[in-house]
Design a protein around this nucleic acid. Structure first.
Lengths: 229, 229
DNA sequence: GCAGCCGAGATTGTAGACAATCATGTTGAT
DNA sequence: ATCAACATGATTGTCTACAATCTCGGCTGC
Protein backbone atom coordinates (compact mmCIF):
# COMPACT_ATOMS: atom_id res chain seq x y z
CA UNK A 1 0.00 0.00 0.00
CA UNK A 2 2.80 2.46 0.64
CA UNK A 3 3.71 4.48 -2.37
CA UNK A 4 7.38 3.55 -2.19
CA UNK A 5 9.22 0.53 -0.88
CA UNK A 6 8.91 -0.83 2.63
CA UNK A 7 11.00 0.33 5.53
CA UNK A 8 11.61 -2.81 7.54
CA UNK A 9 12.01 -6.28 6.03
CA UNK A 10 8.87 -7.48 7.74
CA UNK A 11 6.81 -4.70 6.17
CA UNK A 12 8.29 -5.78 2.88
CA UNK A 13 6.86 -9.25 3.37
CA UNK A 14 3.49 -7.85 4.40
CA UNK A 15 3.35 -5.65 1.35
CA UNK A 16 4.27 -8.36 -1.09
CA UNK A 17 1.70 -10.67 0.42
CA UNK A 18 -0.85 -7.89 0.40
CA UNK A 19 -0.21 -7.19 -3.26
CA UNK A 20 -0.36 -10.87 -4.14
CA UNK A 21 -3.72 -11.11 -2.42
CA UNK A 22 -5.08 -7.93 -3.96
CA UNK A 23 -4.00 -9.07 -7.42
CA UNK A 24 -5.51 -12.46 -6.75
CA UNK A 25 -2.36 -14.38 -7.23
CA UNK A 26 -3.33 -15.73 -3.84
CA UNK A 27 -6.98 -16.65 -3.69
CA UNK A 28 -9.06 -16.47 -0.53
CA UNK A 29 -8.69 -19.70 1.36
CA UNK A 30 -5.22 -20.43 0.00
CA UNK A 31 -2.90 -21.95 2.54
CA UNK A 32 0.15 -20.01 3.62
CA UNK A 33 2.77 -22.40 4.90
CA UNK A 34 5.38 -20.65 6.93
CA UNK A 35 8.22 -22.70 5.56
CA UNK A 36 7.25 -22.12 1.95
CA UNK A 37 6.97 -18.41 2.51
CA UNK A 38 10.30 -18.25 4.25
CA UNK A 39 11.83 -20.00 1.26
CA UNK A 40 10.12 -17.74 -1.29
CA UNK A 41 11.12 -14.53 0.47
CA UNK A 42 14.51 -15.85 1.59
CA UNK A 43 13.94 -14.90 5.19
CA UNK A 44 13.74 -16.82 8.41
CA UNK A 45 10.53 -18.40 9.52
CA UNK A 46 10.37 -16.04 12.46
CA UNK A 47 9.99 -13.08 10.12
CA UNK A 48 7.25 -14.79 8.20
CA UNK A 49 5.56 -15.50 11.48
CA UNK A 50 5.56 -11.86 12.49
CA UNK A 51 4.33 -10.79 9.10
CA UNK A 52 1.44 -13.24 9.28
CA UNK A 53 0.56 -12.07 12.76
CA UNK A 54 0.40 -8.53 11.49
CA UNK A 55 -1.68 -9.48 8.48
CA UNK A 56 -4.06 -11.29 10.75
CA UNK A 57 -4.92 -8.15 12.73
CA UNK A 58 -5.37 -6.46 9.36
CA UNK A 59 -7.94 -9.10 8.53
CA UNK A 60 -6.15 -10.33 5.42
CA UNK A 61 -5.26 -13.76 6.69
CA UNK A 62 -6.85 -16.10 9.17
CA UNK A 63 -4.62 -17.79 11.70
CA UNK A 64 -5.86 -21.11 13.02
CA UNK A 65 -3.95 -22.32 16.06
CA UNK A 66 -1.74 -25.27 15.23
CA UNK A 67 -3.27 -25.39 11.78
CA UNK A 68 -1.52 -22.62 10.00
CA UNK A 69 -2.54 -19.53 8.08
CA UNK A 70 -4.84 -19.10 5.12
CA UNK A 71 -5.88 -16.09 3.11
CA UNK A 72 -8.98 -14.80 4.85
CA UNK A 73 -12.42 -15.51 3.46
CA UNK A 74 -14.62 -12.67 4.66
CA UNK A 75 -18.27 -13.58 4.92
CA UNK A 76 -20.99 -11.55 3.31
CA UNK A 77 -21.87 -9.95 6.62
CA UNK A 78 -18.26 -8.99 7.15
CA UNK A 79 -18.09 -7.57 3.65
CA UNK A 80 -21.14 -5.41 4.20
CA UNK A 81 -19.76 -4.33 7.56
CA UNK A 82 -16.54 -3.21 5.91
CA UNK A 83 -18.45 -1.09 3.44
CA UNK A 84 -20.50 0.36 6.25
CA UNK A 85 -17.31 1.38 8.01
CA UNK A 86 -15.94 2.90 4.84
CA UNK A 87 -19.08 4.95 4.32
CA UNK A 88 -18.89 6.18 7.88
CA UNK A 89 -15.27 7.19 7.74
CA UNK A 90 -14.97 8.51 4.22
CA UNK A 91 -18.10 10.55 4.58
CA UNK A 92 -16.48 12.43 7.42
CA UNK A 93 -13.15 12.62 5.65
CA UNK A 94 -14.43 14.31 2.52
CA UNK A 95 -16.36 16.71 4.71
CA UNK A 96 -13.12 17.79 6.26
CA UNK A 97 -11.31 18.02 2.98
CA UNK A 98 -14.00 20.31 1.59
CA UNK A 99 -13.63 22.73 4.47
CA UNK A 100 -9.98 23.22 3.71
CA UNK A 101 -9.46 23.28 -0.05
CA UNK A 102 -6.04 24.59 -1.01
CA UNK A 103 -4.38 24.88 -4.41
CA UNK A 104 -1.77 22.36 -3.32
CA UNK A 105 -4.46 19.88 -2.35
CA UNK A 106 -6.15 20.23 -5.71
CA UNK A 107 -2.82 19.87 -7.50
CA UNK A 108 -2.06 16.65 -5.68
CA UNK A 109 -5.51 15.26 -6.38
CA UNK A 110 -5.21 16.04 -10.06
CA UNK A 111 -1.72 14.62 -10.27
CA UNK A 112 -2.94 11.44 -8.68
CA UNK A 113 -5.83 11.22 -11.10
CA UNK A 114 -3.40 11.59 -13.95
CA UNK A 115 -1.36 8.68 -12.64
CA UNK A 116 -4.47 6.60 -12.45
CA UNK A 117 -5.35 7.42 -16.02
CA UNK A 118 -1.88 6.47 -17.18
CA UNK A 119 -2.03 3.16 -15.34
CA UNK A 120 -5.37 2.38 -16.98
CA UNK A 121 -3.92 3.36 -20.31
CA UNK A 122 -1.19 0.73 -20.11
CA UNK A 123 -3.38 -1.87 -18.39
CA UNK A 124 -1.05 -2.05 -15.42
CA UNK A 125 -3.18 -4.06 -12.99
CA UNK A 126 -0.77 -3.80 -10.11
CA UNK A 127 -0.52 -0.03 -10.45
CA UNK A 128 -4.26 0.35 -10.89
CA UNK A 129 -4.95 -1.50 -7.66
CA UNK A 130 -2.45 0.50 -5.70
CA UNK A 131 -3.46 3.84 -7.15
CA UNK A 132 -7.18 3.27 -6.69
CA UNK A 133 -6.62 2.74 -3.01
CA UNK A 134 -4.09 5.54 -2.97
CA UNK A 135 -6.72 8.02 -4.06
CA UNK A 136 -8.77 7.39 -0.98
CA UNK A 137 -5.71 7.49 1.22
CA UNK A 138 -4.74 10.79 -0.33
CA UNK A 139 -8.10 12.18 0.70
CA UNK A 140 -7.50 10.95 4.24
CA UNK A 141 -4.13 12.65 4.25
CA UNK A 142 -5.60 15.89 2.98
CA UNK A 143 -8.26 15.64 5.66
CA UNK A 144 -5.42 15.60 8.16
CA UNK A 145 -6.67 12.73 10.25
CA UNK A 146 -3.78 10.39 10.72
CA UNK A 147 -5.72 7.84 12.68
CA UNK A 148 -8.71 7.52 10.38
CA UNK A 149 -6.24 7.36 7.54
CA UNK A 150 -4.62 4.31 9.08
CA UNK A 151 -8.01 2.71 9.61
CA UNK A 152 -8.92 3.45 6.04
CA UNK A 153 -5.73 1.82 4.82
CA UNK A 154 -6.82 -1.35 6.49
CA UNK A 155 -10.34 -1.02 5.15
CA UNK A 156 -9.00 -0.66 1.64
CA UNK A 157 -6.93 -3.81 2.03
CA UNK A 158 -9.99 -5.70 3.15
CA UNK A 159 -11.98 -4.23 0.31
CA UNK A 160 -9.44 -5.59 -2.15
CA UNK A 161 -9.82 -9.00 -0.60
CA UNK A 162 -13.59 -8.76 -0.76
CA UNK A 163 -13.48 -7.75 -4.38
CA UNK A 164 -11.18 -10.67 -5.10
CA UNK A 165 -13.65 -12.96 -3.42
CA UNK A 166 -17.03 -11.73 -4.56
CA UNK A 167 -16.62 -9.83 -7.79
CA UNK A 168 -19.14 -10.95 -10.37
CA UNK A 169 -17.80 -9.54 -13.62
CA UNK A 170 -14.20 -10.06 -14.57
CA UNK A 171 -13.29 -6.42 -15.11
CA UNK A 172 -15.49 -4.21 -12.93
CA UNK A 173 -14.61 -1.24 -15.15
CA UNK A 174 -14.08 0.99 -12.18
CA UNK A 175 -12.17 3.61 -14.03
CA UNK A 176 -11.07 6.96 -12.65
CA UNK A 177 -14.24 8.70 -13.77
CA UNK A 178 -15.83 8.55 -10.35
CA UNK A 179 -12.68 9.77 -8.70
CA UNK A 180 -12.70 12.67 -11.12
CA UNK A 181 -16.27 13.46 -10.17
CA UNK A 182 -15.27 13.56 -6.52
CA UNK A 183 -12.42 15.91 -7.28
CA UNK A 184 -14.72 18.24 -9.18
CA UNK A 185 -17.08 18.40 -6.24
CA UNK A 186 -14.25 19.10 -3.84
CA UNK A 187 -12.99 21.91 -6.02
CA UNK A 188 -16.49 23.41 -6.10
CA UNK A 189 -16.48 23.31 -2.30
CA UNK A 190 -19.77 21.44 -2.39
CA UNK A 191 -19.73 19.38 0.80
CA UNK A 192 -23.00 17.57 0.26
CA UNK A 193 -22.21 17.02 -3.37
CA UNK A 194 -18.85 15.52 -2.49
CA UNK A 195 -20.43 13.29 0.09
CA UNK A 196 -22.96 12.13 -2.45
CA UNK A 197 -20.28 11.48 -5.03
CA UNK A 198 -18.23 9.47 -2.56
CA UNK A 199 -21.27 7.53 -1.37
CA UNK A 200 -22.19 6.77 -4.95
CA UNK A 201 -18.66 5.63 -5.67
CA UNK A 202 -18.61 3.26 -2.71
CA UNK A 203 -22.08 2.00 -3.48
CA UNK A 204 -20.99 1.35 -7.02
CA UNK A 205 -18.12 -0.80 -5.84
CA UNK A 206 -20.33 -2.65 -3.40
CA UNK A 207 -23.11 -3.23 -5.90
CA UNK A 208 -20.73 -4.58 -8.48
CA UNK A 209 -20.15 -7.50 -6.12
CA UNK A 210 -22.19 -10.63 -5.84
CA UNK A 211 -23.19 -10.48 -2.21
CA UNK A 212 -26.23 -12.68 -2.47
CA UNK A 213 -25.62 -16.41 -2.34
CA UNK A 214 -24.56 -17.45 1.00
CA UNK A 215 -20.89 -18.17 0.74
CA UNK A 216 -18.37 -19.98 -1.36
CA UNK A 217 -16.50 -21.25 1.69
CA UNK A 218 -14.55 -24.10 0.18
CA UNK A 219 -11.17 -23.64 1.73
CA UNK A 220 -10.15 -27.25 1.57
CA UNK A 221 -11.56 -28.07 -1.83
CA UNK A 222 -10.39 -24.88 -3.34
CA UNK A 223 -6.71 -25.20 -2.78
CA UNK A 224 -6.85 -28.75 -3.97
CA UNK A 225 -8.50 -27.73 -7.23
CA UNK A 226 -6.76 -24.45 -7.87
CA UNK A 227 -3.14 -25.33 -7.51
CA UNK A 228 -1.55 -22.27 -9.00
CA UNK A 229 1.60 -21.19 -7.22
CA UNK B 1 -10.79 -4.57 27.80
CA UNK B 2 -12.67 -7.83 27.35
CA UNK B 3 -15.37 -8.27 29.91
CA UNK B 4 -14.07 -11.62 31.07
CA UNK B 5 -10.61 -13.10 31.26
CA UNK B 6 -8.29 -13.46 28.31
CA UNK B 7 -8.30 -16.42 26.01
CA UNK B 8 -4.64 -16.91 25.10
CA UNK B 9 -1.71 -16.24 27.45
CA UNK B 10 -0.46 -13.46 25.23
CA UNK B 11 -3.80 -11.68 25.41
CA UNK B 12 -3.50 -12.00 29.15
CA UNK B 13 -0.23 -10.11 29.06
CA UNK B 14 -1.69 -7.45 26.80
CA UNK B 15 -4.65 -6.97 29.07
CA UNK B 16 -2.63 -6.69 32.21
CA UNK B 17 -0.32 -4.19 30.61
CA UNK B 18 -3.26 -2.29 29.23
CA UNK B 19 -4.88 -2.12 32.63
CA UNK B 20 -1.64 -1.06 34.27
CA UNK B 21 -1.34 1.76 31.76
CA UNK B 22 -4.95 2.81 32.08
CA UNK B 23 -4.70 2.88 35.86
CA UNK B 24 -1.45 4.82 35.61
CA UNK B 25 0.62 2.27 37.38
CA UNK B 26 2.72 2.60 34.26
CA UNK B 27 3.20 6.21 33.26
CA UNK B 28 3.64 7.37 29.67
CA UNK B 29 7.30 7.17 28.77
CA UNK B 30 8.05 4.38 31.20
CA UNK B 31 10.48 1.86 29.86
CA UNK B 32 9.30 -1.68 29.32
CA UNK B 33 12.25 -4.04 29.46
CA UNK B 34 11.46 -7.38 27.94
CA UNK B 35 13.40 -9.30 30.54
CA UNK B 36 11.72 -7.57 33.46
CA UNK B 37 8.30 -8.17 32.00
CA UNK B 38 9.04 -11.81 31.35
CA UNK B 39 10.06 -12.14 34.99
CA UNK B 40 7.00 -10.32 36.30
CA UNK B 41 4.56 -12.35 34.25
CA UNK B 42 6.54 -15.58 34.53
CA UNK B 43 6.57 -16.17 30.81
CA UNK B 44 9.28 -16.42 28.24
CA UNK B 45 10.69 -13.36 26.61
CA UNK B 46 9.23 -14.43 23.28
CA UNK B 47 5.73 -14.06 24.63
CA UNK B 48 6.46 -10.63 25.98
CA UNK B 49 7.83 -9.73 22.61
CA UNK B 50 4.64 -10.71 20.83
CA UNK B 51 2.53 -8.87 23.36
CA UNK B 52 4.57 -5.71 22.90
CA UNK B 53 4.29 -5.98 19.15
CA UNK B 54 0.54 -6.21 19.47
CA UNK B 55 0.37 -3.28 21.85
CA UNK B 56 2.43 -1.25 19.45
CA UNK B 57 -0.14 -1.53 16.65
CA UNK B 58 -2.73 -0.57 19.26
CA UNK B 59 -0.75 2.58 19.89
CA UNK B 60 -0.23 1.91 23.57
CA UNK B 61 3.51 1.40 23.45
CA UNK B 62 6.22 2.74 21.20
CA UNK B 63 8.80 0.32 19.90
CA UNK B 64 12.17 1.80 19.03
CA UNK B 65 14.41 -0.55 17.05
CA UNK B 66 17.27 -1.86 19.15
CA UNK B 67 16.24 0.52 21.91
CA UNK B 68 13.33 -1.25 23.49
CA UNK B 69 9.75 -0.39 24.26
CA UNK B 70 8.23 2.46 26.23
CA UNK B 71 4.67 3.36 27.12
CA UNK B 72 3.52 5.60 24.30
CA UNK B 73 3.39 9.37 24.77
CA UNK B 74 0.74 10.61 22.38
CA UNK B 75 1.23 14.21 21.33
CA UNK B 76 -1.49 16.78 21.61
CA UNK B 77 -2.21 16.53 17.91
CA UNK B 78 -2.54 12.79 18.21
CA UNK B 79 -4.82 13.19 21.18
CA UNK B 80 -7.12 15.54 19.32
CA UNK B 81 -7.04 13.24 16.32
CA UNK B 82 -8.16 10.33 18.48
CA UNK B 83 -11.11 12.31 19.75
CA UNK B 84 -11.97 13.33 16.22
CA UNK B 85 -12.05 9.68 15.22
CA UNK B 86 -14.22 8.84 18.20
CA UNK B 87 -16.70 11.55 17.33
CA UNK B 88 -16.85 10.29 13.77
CA UNK B 89 -17.41 6.68 14.68
CA UNK B 90 -19.60 6.97 17.74
CA UNK B 91 -21.84 9.49 16.04
CA UNK B 92 -22.65 6.90 13.42
CA UNK B 93 -22.89 4.11 15.94
CA UNK B 94 -25.55 5.75 18.10
CA UNK B 95 -27.46 6.61 14.95
CA UNK B 96 -27.67 2.94 14.14
CA UNK B 97 -28.58 1.96 17.66
CA UNK B 98 -31.48 4.39 17.67
CA UNK B 99 -32.93 2.92 14.52
CA UNK B 100 -33.14 -0.48 16.14
CA UNK B 101 -34.18 -0.10 19.75
CA UNK B 102 -35.27 -3.39 21.30
CA UNK B 103 -36.30 -4.21 24.87
CA UNK B 104 -33.26 -6.48 25.17
CA UNK B 105 -30.97 -3.67 24.11
CA UNK B 106 -32.44 -1.32 26.68
CA UNK B 107 -32.19 -3.98 29.36
CA UNK B 108 -28.51 -4.53 28.63
CA UNK B 109 -27.81 -0.83 28.65
CA UNK B 110 -29.55 -0.38 31.97
CA UNK B 111 -27.83 -3.38 33.48
CA UNK B 112 -24.51 -1.98 32.41
CA UNK B 113 -25.31 1.38 33.90
CA UNK B 114 -26.16 -0.33 37.15
CA UNK B 115 -22.78 -2.02 37.20
CA UNK B 116 -21.11 1.31 36.62
CA UNK B 117 -23.01 2.83 39.52
CA UNK B 118 -22.00 -0.02 41.79
CA UNK B 119 -18.36 0.35 40.82
CA UNK B 120 -18.48 4.05 41.58
CA UNK B 121 -20.15 3.28 44.87
CA UNK B 122 -17.27 1.16 46.07
CA UNK B 123 -14.58 3.35 44.47
CA UNK B 124 -13.29 0.45 42.41
CA UNK B 125 -10.98 2.30 40.02
CA UNK B 126 -10.10 -0.70 37.94
CA UNK B 127 -13.74 -1.64 37.44
CA UNK B 128 -14.71 1.95 36.71
CA UNK B 129 -12.14 2.21 33.95
CA UNK B 130 -13.18 -1.03 32.36
CA UNK B 131 -16.90 -0.38 32.65
CA UNK B 132 -16.69 3.15 31.31
CA UNK B 133 -15.10 1.84 28.14
CA UNK B 134 -17.43 -1.11 28.16
CA UNK B 135 -20.43 1.18 27.86
CA UNK B 136 -19.21 2.52 24.55
CA UNK B 137 -18.33 -0.94 23.35
CA UNK B 138 -21.79 -2.13 24.27
CA UNK B 139 -23.23 0.55 22.06
CA UNK B 140 -21.00 -0.62 19.23
CA UNK B 141 -22.20 -4.15 19.75
CA UNK B 142 -25.82 -3.07 19.77
CA UNK B 143 -25.16 -1.13 16.58
CA UNK B 144 -24.10 -4.40 15.04
CA UNK B 145 -20.91 -3.17 13.44
CA UNK B 146 -18.21 -5.57 14.37
CA UNK B 147 -15.48 -3.69 12.59
CA UNK B 148 -16.18 -0.24 13.97
CA UNK B 149 -16.50 -1.90 17.36
CA UNK B 150 -12.98 -3.23 17.08
CA UNK B 151 -11.72 0.18 16.02
CA UNK B 152 -13.53 1.76 18.92
CA UNK B 153 -11.92 -0.68 21.33
CA UNK B 154 -8.55 0.58 20.23
CA UNK B 155 -9.68 4.17 20.41
CA UNK B 156 -10.83 3.66 23.97
CA UNK B 157 -7.48 2.21 24.93
CA UNK B 158 -5.75 5.20 23.45
CA UNK B 159 -8.17 7.51 25.19
CA UNK B 160 -7.26 5.93 28.51
CA UNK B 161 -3.62 6.60 27.77
CA UNK B 162 -4.36 10.17 26.79
CA UNK B 163 -6.32 10.73 29.98
CA UNK B 164 -3.46 9.28 31.98
CA UNK B 165 -1.12 11.69 30.25
CA UNK B 166 -3.04 14.93 30.09
CA UNK B 167 -5.69 14.94 32.76
CA UNK B 168 -5.62 18.15 34.73
CA UNK B 169 -7.72 17.41 37.81
CA UNK B 170 -7.02 14.30 39.79
CA UNK B 171 -10.52 12.84 39.70
CA UNK B 172 -12.33 14.03 36.58
CA UNK B 173 -15.67 13.18 38.15
CA UNK B 174 -16.89 11.51 35.03
CA UNK B 175 -19.67 9.60 36.65
CA UNK B 176 -22.32 7.58 34.88
CA UNK B 177 -24.71 10.52 34.64
CA UNK B 178 -23.81 11.24 31.03
CA UNK B 179 -24.12 7.62 30.11
CA UNK B 180 -27.55 7.65 31.66
CA UNK B 181 -28.48 10.67 29.60
CA UNK B 182 -27.45 8.84 26.44
CA UNK B 183 -29.53 5.85 27.40
CA UNK B 184 -32.56 8.04 27.98
CA UNK B 185 -32.20 9.56 24.54
CA UNK B 186 -31.85 6.17 22.93
CA UNK B 187 -34.98 4.94 24.65
CA UNK B 188 -36.85 7.99 23.39
CA UNK B 189 -35.71 7.11 19.89
CA UNK B 190 -34.36 10.63 19.49
CA UNK B 191 -31.50 10.24 17.02
CA UNK B 192 -30.34 13.84 17.03
CA UNK B 193 -30.71 14.03 20.79
CA UNK B 194 -28.63 10.90 21.24
CA UNK B 195 -25.98 12.25 18.91
CA UNK B 196 -25.90 15.48 20.85
CA UNK B 197 -25.66 13.66 24.16
CA UNK B 198 -22.81 11.52 22.89
CA UNK B 199 -21.00 14.50 21.39
CA UNK B 200 -21.38 16.36 24.66
CA UNK B 201 -20.07 13.40 26.59
CA UNK B 202 -16.98 13.09 24.39
CA UNK B 203 -16.43 16.84 24.44
CA UNK B 204 -16.66 16.76 28.21
CA UNK B 205 -13.91 14.17 28.40
CA UNK B 206 -11.75 16.05 25.94
CA UNK B 207 -12.24 19.39 27.64
CA UNK B 208 -11.36 18.00 31.02
CA UNK B 209 -7.86 17.45 29.67
CA UNK B 210 -5.06 19.91 29.60
CA UNK B 211 -4.29 19.98 25.88
CA UNK B 212 -2.61 23.34 25.82
CA UNK B 213 1.04 23.41 26.79
CA UNK B 214 3.11 21.78 24.24
CA UNK B 215 4.19 18.51 25.69
CA UNK B 216 5.68 16.99 28.81
CA UNK B 217 7.98 14.73 26.82
CA UNK B 218 10.52 13.77 29.42
CA UNK B 219 10.99 10.11 28.73
CA UNK B 220 14.54 9.85 29.98
CA UNK B 221 14.20 12.10 33.00
CA UNK B 222 10.88 10.67 33.98
CA UNK B 223 11.88 7.08 34.49
CA UNK B 224 14.90 8.21 36.40
CA UNK B 225 12.77 10.24 38.77
CA UNK B 226 9.72 8.05 39.03
CA UNK B 227 11.14 4.67 39.79
CA UNK B 228 8.03 2.92 40.92
CA UNK B 229 7.93 -0.72 39.88
C1' DG C 1 38.72 21.82 32.61
C1' DC C 2 36.22 20.14 28.78
C1' DA C 3 35.35 17.68 24.53
C1' DG C 4 35.75 13.69 21.96
C1' DC C 5 36.73 8.80 21.79
C1' DC C 6 36.77 4.13 23.16
C1' DG C 7 35.46 -0.04 25.72
C1' DA C 8 32.42 -2.63 28.94
C1' DG C 9 27.85 -3.75 30.10
C1' DA C 10 23.31 -4.28 29.00
C1' DT C 11 19.42 -4.90 25.91
C1' DT C 12 17.30 -6.16 21.84
C1' DG C 13 17.10 -8.94 17.42
C1' DT C 14 17.76 -13.42 15.13
C1' DA C 15 18.38 -18.11 14.22
C1' DG C 16 18.23 -22.82 14.96
C1' DA C 17 16.57 -26.81 17.38
C1' DC C 18 13.09 -29.22 20.03
C1' DA C 19 8.36 -30.28 21.62
C1' DA C 20 3.36 -30.25 20.91
C1' DT C 21 -0.44 -30.60 17.91
C1' DC C 22 -3.05 -31.86 13.97
C1' DA C 23 -4.11 -34.16 9.38
C1' DT C 24 -3.71 -38.34 6.67
C1' DG C 25 -3.52 -43.05 5.37
C1' DT C 26 -3.50 -47.68 6.99
C1' DT C 27 -5.19 -51.52 9.55
C1' DG C 28 -8.33 -54.22 11.87
C1' DA C 29 -12.85 -55.44 13.62
C1' DT C 30 -17.79 -55.60 13.14
C1' DA D 1 -18.08 -52.91 3.03
C1' DT D 2 -17.93 -49.40 6.47
C1' DC D 3 -16.43 -47.32 10.47
C1' DA D 4 -13.27 -46.56 14.19
C1' DA D 5 -8.85 -46.44 16.21
C1' DC D 6 -3.93 -45.97 15.58
C1' DA D 7 0.47 -44.84 13.78
C1' DT D 8 2.99 -41.79 10.86
C1' DG D 9 4.28 -37.57 8.67
C1' DA D 10 3.98 -32.83 8.36
C1' DT D 11 3.32 -28.29 10.35
C1' DT D 12 3.09 -25.09 13.86
C1' DG D 13 4.40 -23.25 18.55
C1' DT D 14 7.99 -22.44 21.95
C1' DC D 15 12.32 -22.11 24.06
C1' DT D 16 17.33 -21.25 24.54
C1' DA D 17 21.61 -19.65 22.98
C1' DC D 18 24.16 -16.47 20.08
C1' DA D 19 25.04 -12.17 17.42
C1' DA D 20 24.23 -7.25 16.54
C1' DT D 21 23.30 -2.81 18.38
C1' DC D 22 22.97 0.76 21.62
C1' DT D 23 23.96 3.27 26.18
C1' DC D 24 26.87 4.77 29.65
C1' DG D 25 31.17 5.22 32.15
C1' DG D 26 35.94 6.27 32.12
C1' DC D 27 40.05 7.80 29.70
C1' DT D 28 43.06 10.46 26.87
C1' DG D 29 44.36 14.61 24.55
C1' DC D 30 43.97 19.43 23.81
Amino acid sequence: MPTKTAQTPIDEICNRLWLAIAERKLRPGARLKEEDLSAVFSVSRARVRQALARLEVSGLVTLMPNRGAVVAEPSIEEARDIFFARRTIEDRLVERVCTNVTPEAMARLRAHLEEERAAHERDDTSAIIQLSGGFHLLIAELAGSRYLGDVLRELISRTSLIIAMYQSRAAPDCGPQEHEEIIRMIEAGDIDGTKRAMAKHLAHIENALDLKHDKPRQSELKDILARDG
